[in-house]
Amino acid sequence: MTRPLASLLHAEAVRRGLRSGDPLPDERELFELVRDLPYARASSHAPETVIAEWRGTCSTKHELLAALYAELGLPSTIYACTQEIRLPDGSAPELAAWNGEPVIDVHNYLVLHERGGDRLIDATWPLAARAAGLPANEWGHDMQIACTPLETWALNPGEDVAAFKEAKLRERYTPEQLERRDEFIRAVGQLFTRG
């Protein structure tokens, strides 16, 4: 079975000292590698770009995982949901500007359709994000969604995740709310990619 994206992910992880040697990552390690990519926007949604730039957000991480799992013959569905981000007490000082009024967003996560049933997967936050008060999942069945969904949609196979997200954001939120969202995503990205 040819797994070009898994090979690319493996090679980049080896180059970064995160993996060694031989076998390509299995289902669990694919999740762990993608989850632990720093949370920051990549320059495109292409899985190869996310791997090369070693960063991703909820949409690009789950698009990458869907493609990686497809290489294993595991079908999946990307979901989108509206959310309001309210930072917990003890959040990183760099995010203090976003305490109080919630930040709006459309969040993406994945449902993996395995033989034994569906598995909810949310690889948004790397384990390092726990220090900032953000929820990060371990491998397991039905992980915690990184937000409290308000409205939820299952995307159709092959549907453009970025276009769907952009349409929902524009339908539901003001330009001011969208600018606040973009500033928040940039700040979180800087927090996890600095140094």
Score class of each variant (00 low, 15 high):
L8M: 14
L9P: 10
H10C: 13
E12P: 07
P23F: 08
R28A: 12
E32A: 15
D36R: 12
D36H: 12
E48N: 09
T49V: 15
V50I: 15
W54V: 12
G56R: 05
C58L: 00
S59M: 10
K61I: 03
L65K: 02
L65D: 01
L65Q: 04
A67S: 12
Y69W: 15
T82Q: 02
Q83I: 06
R86V: 08
P88R: 09
G90E: 11
A92L: 08
A92P: 01
W98V: 00
N99L: 10
G100A: 10
L112M: 08
G116F: 06
D118L: 01
P126R: 15
L127V: 11
A129I: 07
A129C: 14
A131V: 08
P135T: 12
N137R: 09
G140Q: 10
H141W: 06
D142L: 00
M143Y: 06
Q144W: 09
T152N: 00
L155F: 01
P157H: 03
G158Q: 00
D160F: 01
A167M: 04
K168S: 02
K168A: 04
R170H: 13
Y173C: 06
E176I: 11
L178Y: 11
E179P: 07
E179G: 10
R180P: 08
Q190I: 06
T193H: 04
R194H: 11
G195Y: 11
